[in-house]
């Protein structure tokens, strides 16, 4: 007996909540504020009830832009600029690939993409150490 495709069944029955257009208006206002005053904003998509088809329609509507970044930080994350520069779709997954968060970030650059000062400082120290070993190897050969 095969497992019935629940997702297909649920998708068929899905009716929108009507929240998609509300979210898009929020994004539009935030984008205006970003352009005018440089104010960044994050919208948590899990905080609003939306059906899966609605979420798909929302992301399709925003489209794809020029940048897709894959991040490996305790699990896969993705930051994708939509067809509207300044509007990013950020998805966080954990080490077992379970979805942990979905956000629309209205910003020049999502925080997750930025190299963090603490990490930069640690990297500096690490590179310094690695280079001392490098010089040792060079001298040996």
């Amino acid at each position: 007996m095969s497992r019935p495709d629940l997702n297909a069944v649920l998708r068929q029955r899905a009716r929108g909540t009507g929240n998609m257009v509300l979210v898009l208006h929020e994004v539009a206002h935030a984008l205006e504020a970003l352009a005018a005053r440089g104010e960044a904003r994050v919208i948590d998509l899990s905080s609003l009830p939306m059906t899966a088809p609605e979420l798909d329609r929302l992301t399709d509507w925003l489209g794809r832009g020029e940048v897709i970044a894959q991040i490996e930080a305790e699990g896969r994350s993705e930051a994708m600029e939509t067809a509207y520069p300044g509007v990013w779709l950020v998805t966080h997954r954990d080490r077992d690939d379970m979805l942990r968060g979905r956000y629309i970030e209205i910003t020049p650059l999502p925080e997750i993409l930025r190299s963090q000062p603490a990490d930069i400082a640690a990297a500096g120290r690490r590179m310094a150490r690695a280079l001392t070993h490098f010089s040792d190897l060079e001298e040996a050969s």
Binding site: I71, A73, G75, E111, S115, A118, D119
Partner: peptide, 8 residues
């Protein structure tokens, strides 16, 4: 664990 992961 990077600070990036911590922020996530």
């Amino acid at each position: 664990i990077s600070r990036r992961s911590f922020l996530k």
